[in-house]
């Protein structure tokens, strides 16, 4: 039952990714006339355009270009970056070499922020529900509504003002790493980027946990348990808590999805060497092969994350398992 659903969702996901790849390819490669001219901009000379056209294989039919691009992508041939010496005729850095350390750094950032944010959000949500209408509940609820509206780059800049340049000068304002090193070698560089993302995602997880827990505590089965004289801590722990697992997993999944996009601005603010910052700089430099690969990776993460979240939520909830 569940596995058929997993299979169906996976096939649909692959189909979605196929269409995504078409969209990405055409948006970056074909739509605006000649990509070679766009890349070279002012410095376009007939000779250079010709070299670049040959490298991008722009002189072949569009469908051919797409199919060979997709084939290369699937077999792991990601091509070469256009930045640096490519414009003078030499070969750029292989895209995979350029992206893989960034991918690792971004994964660390997303994983740490997601983990800390989820634990914090769920704990605060449960605490607020257990002390409903207390000052703690009121302050956290209004605070959550306010913080959900904050743009992540503003949160990041505020943290920089507080902890790096203004008030306390205890943390680095930028997280630049020497090339070839990973974020774990200098953990203090991770503090502010992770803190920014945690502040942005906690309110969502908090609100969902609070709503789900409130609903569970007002349910008939909790009422029944109370009438039977079950102690409050047992009710909270064994009757209410298991029932908030599916919605909470859903919202945690949604927040991991958000993080995949949220890293773009946060990595840019801190100059953190991840794929978000890589995407911004590749767009600035019109480095098409790099843009394509990063966007496809982010989309694949999105689609996979969606499936994983749905399946876990489904497995965690007996009621839903029967319903479908």
């Amino acid at each position: 039952m569940v596995w058929r659903l997993v299979l169906r969702r996976t096939l649909l996901g692959l189909l979605t990714l196929l269409v995504v790849s078409i969209l990405v390819f055409f948006a970056t490669h074909v739509l605006p006339g000649n990509a070679a001219n766009a890349v070279l901009g002012q410095s376009a000379t007939p000779k250079r355009v010709e070299v670049l056209e040959a490298q991008l294989e722009l002189n072949r039919p569009v469908v051919d270009q797409y199919l060979s691009w997709l084939g290369n992508l699937l077999t792991g041939h990601l091509g070469h970056s256009l930045s640096g010496d490519t414009l003078t005729g030499g070969g750029g850095q292989p895209v995979w070499e350029l992206i893989s350390p960034k991918l690792v750094n971004s994964a660390i950032l997303v994983f740490l922020s997601g983990l800390i944010g989820s634990v914090l959000g769920v704990l605060l949500g449960i605490l607020a529900t257990l002390r409903r209408e207390s000052w703690f509940d009121r302050i956290t609820s209004v605070g959550a509504l306010t913080v959900t509206a904050l743009p992540e780059f503003i949160v990041a800049v505020v943290l920089v003002i507080l902890f790096a340049t203004g008030g306390l000068q205890i943390l680095p304002a930028v997280s630049t790493l020497p090339p070839g090193t990973y974020a774990w070698s200098e953990p203090e560089l991770l503090v502010l980027p992770v803190a920014t993302l945690v502040i942005v995602i906690v309110p969502y997880i908090f609100r969902m946990t609070r709503a789900a827990m409130t609903e569970a505590l007002e349910s008939d089965y909790v009422e029944m348990a109370k009438l039977n004289g079950v102690p409050t801590w047992r009710i909270n722990l064994f009757h209410a808590l298991p029932n908030i697992v599916p919605p909470v997993i859903q919202v945690i999944g949604l927040n991991f999805l958000y993080l995949a996009g949220g890293i773009v601005l946060v990595e840019f603010v801190f100059n953190y060497p991840g794929i978000g910052q890589g995407l911004v700089s590749s767009i600035t430099q019109r480095d098409i092969p790099v843009i394509q690969v990063i966007v496809v990776i982010l989309a694949a993460f999105y689609v996979a994350m969606n499936i994983v979240t749905d399946v876990i939520a489904l497995l965690a909830s007996p009621r839903r398992r029967v319903a479908r």
Partner: peptide, 19 residues
């Protein structure tokens, strides 16, 4: 579903990237 497979900001950046 296809449009939802991108983070919003990434979709916007993709569309702005060349033009």
């Amino acid at each position: 579903d296809v449009l939802l497979a991108f983070p919003q900001l990434v979709l916007v950046l993709l569309l702005l990237s060349i033009v």
